[in-house]
Design a protein around this nucleic acid. Structure first.
Lengths: 148, 148
DNA sequence: GAAGTTGTCTAGTGAGTTGCTCAAGATTTT
DNA sequence: AAAATCTTGAGCAACTCACTAGACAACTTC
């Protein structure tokens, strides 16, 4: 029940890109250095986010990446789904990638306890992440005493 | 962001064991057949649940497994943690298996946006699963039209 | 007390995923 | 043209997942 490094790095990269939103572009090595992410791996992540329409890029000298959607219009849920796939804890409750489970004896009966429970979990996760905007994410201030 | 087959099988096995709670024991092959689970794999799962104190077992002829805690006192959260480890989506927000993240630049600052967001997710998941008892789980009736 | 039936334990294994690296190419600026 | 940057695709070691196998221990029944 873990999120991948890919998602984690992706979100941390977007944190940097948020700060320069509307301004200059950021190069991969800048993001990588500030956020402690292996450059070549970060590259793949930025590319994925670009293909998904969140980022624009320019090549050559003075090139780099920039956010092209407002941080208000991007949610953590979107980002995680791009980088990690569906949020649902088991695929028979996924709304974005539903798949009938093969071996479940309740599958035919329309009364699967697992589906009920995991559905609730899915909804709770989606409810948080699909309403958590990047701008709120970027302006987080934790309470005193927290440690990461 | 998925639960393992181990958890899924474990929960489905407990569904069977709930039905005979207080009565007879169930043998691994009975559970395996009814729930469509590979026997030897199921074995490991039952053993883990036994070591965790949820199940008792008897060897030899007429042997088998039985629940030894009331289904009211077992939650899905407990079971999943036994079989799958901590619920937290990243380990720096786990309450049962906290680990400082190595590469996060916010780690020292007590203001990690990721920790904040993932903490909310963790709490939401735990809030559902730690209050979802096995007896409620076993008596699930889904609404019409659902499919698993 | 021997035979047969069950759980117990440890180790292994094939397929797939994760996290990351590398190299060659395309595009832009200077 | 040269240098800097993004782009693409391939590769790979380590790990995890889902499962299998086999030897062993304990219990029941005859």
């Amino acid at each position: 029940m873990k999120f991948s490094k890919k998602s984690e790095y992706g979100l941390r990269a977007l944190l940097e890109l948020c700060e320069t939103y509307g301004g200059r572009v950021l190069q991969r090595h800048e993001i990588a250095e500030r956020q402690n992410i292996p450059v070549e791996f970060l590259e793949q992540i930025l590319l994925a986010l670009k293909r998904a329409g969140l980022l624009a890029s320019r090549r050559g000298m003075r090139g780099g990446y920039a956010l092209i959607k407002s941080p208000d219009d991007i949610t953590l849920g979107q980002v995680i789904r791009i980088l990690d796939g569906p949020l649902a804890p088991i695929s028979c409750v996924s709304k974005t990638a539903y798949q009938k489970c093969a071996d479940c004896p309740y599958a035919a009966k329309a009364a699967c306890p697992l589906q009920q429970a995991m559905g609730e979990v899915r909804d709770a996760i989606a409810n948080i992440l699909d309403h958590y905007t990047l701008s709120r994410f970027a302006h987080t201030k934790l309470a005193e005493g927290s440690s990461c």
